[in-house]
């Protein structure tokens, strides 16, 4: 079976939960992009606004100042697909012009009304994530009737809305949004039932890297969570996840190589 594509995370922010402040200059962003590519990344996901719990929003201008120089520099140096991690249409538009190839919107096109027209006028892939609440309040007692059913219902509604607005569903990748308005048990249920999301017929992205639920279980600090992150990546192969979004690409690539080799054995 094919190894899932690995999306390497590159946050050009001062305050992301794991790598905030490390790559907020163009030179350091380029250097990290090279490290991700060498480690086996298939896609680099570039974000200029932290989405960690209780993060404060940034202006369009500030986000543009962070991501556009990085995207331009990385595009000129590397032949690798780049995704822009943003909820703002203007940021996405300028990122695509600078060389990005995928829109990754954690609000599933709900935050900025101008995102739909941008998606309609372009032909790039779009990643839509499920999130209950906003980064500012999402982890304050999240509630679901049934977390799997509720997320599937959300995705069905979003896909129907896109279809009504003339967007080909073939372009859409779904992300159940680990850690975005979910308790520990919600996150574990999502991971156990990933195959249910695949039944919607779209590619599936999993973004679990170094997140809080791993710390809840293992007691590990953010910088020490790459091993359990790789274990989750390996287990997700069974559900045929298409894209795995991680900080430590090398560890994930090794985990996926082993998992797919075992799955391909007679």
């Amino acid at each position: 079976m094919a190894i899932p594509k690995i999306m390497g995370i590159l946050n050009v922010t001062p305050d992301s939960f794991s790598d905030g402040g490390q790559f907020d200059s163009t030179a350091s962003a380029c250097s990290q992009a090279e490290a991700l590519v060498v480690s086996g990344a298939d896609i680099i996901d570039i974000g200029g606004e932290s989405t960690r719990p209780f993060a404060k929003p940034v202006t369009v201008r500030e986000e543009l100042n962070r991501v556009i120089p990085a995207i331009s520099a990385i595009r000129s140096a590397f032949s690798i697909p780049l995704s822009i991690d943003t909820t703002k249409a203007e940021v996405a538009r300028q990122a695509l012009a600078a060389g990005a190839n995928i829109i990754n919107d954690i609000s599933a096109l709900r935050k900025d009304p101008a995102m739909l027209p941008l998606v309609q006028e372009t032909s790039v892939p779009v990643i839509m994530m499920h999130m209950q609440g906003t980064p500012g309040d999402m982890q304050v007692n999240p509630q679901y009737d049934d977390v799997i059913d509720d997320i599937i219902t959300f995705f069905k509604e979003r896909l129907a809305w896109l279809q009504e607005n003339g967007v080909a569903l073939h372009r859409i990748t779904l992300d159940p949004g680990i850690g975005f308005g979910k308790s520990l048990n919600h996150n574990l249920s999502i991971l156990k039932h990933l195959a249910a999301f695949k039944a919607l017929g779209c590619p599936l992205l999993l973004g679990h890297s170094r997140k809080g639920f791993i710390g809840d279980i293992t007691g590990l600090q953010v910088e020490d969570r790459d091993l359990p992150t790789a274990v989750v990546s390996a287990l997700s192969c069974a559900a045929k996840v298409d894209i795995i979004r991680v900080h430590n690409v090398a560890a994930t690539y090794q985990a996926l190589q082993m998992t797919t080799a075992i799955q391909d054995a007679e």
Binding site: P81, N101, S123, V126, A168, H170, R171, I172
Partner: peptide
């Protein structure tokens, strides 16, 4: 399979 409708320019 990942939603691209054409080969990216790069």
């Amino acid at each position: 399979p990942l939603g691209f409708t054409e080969i990216p320019k790069f």
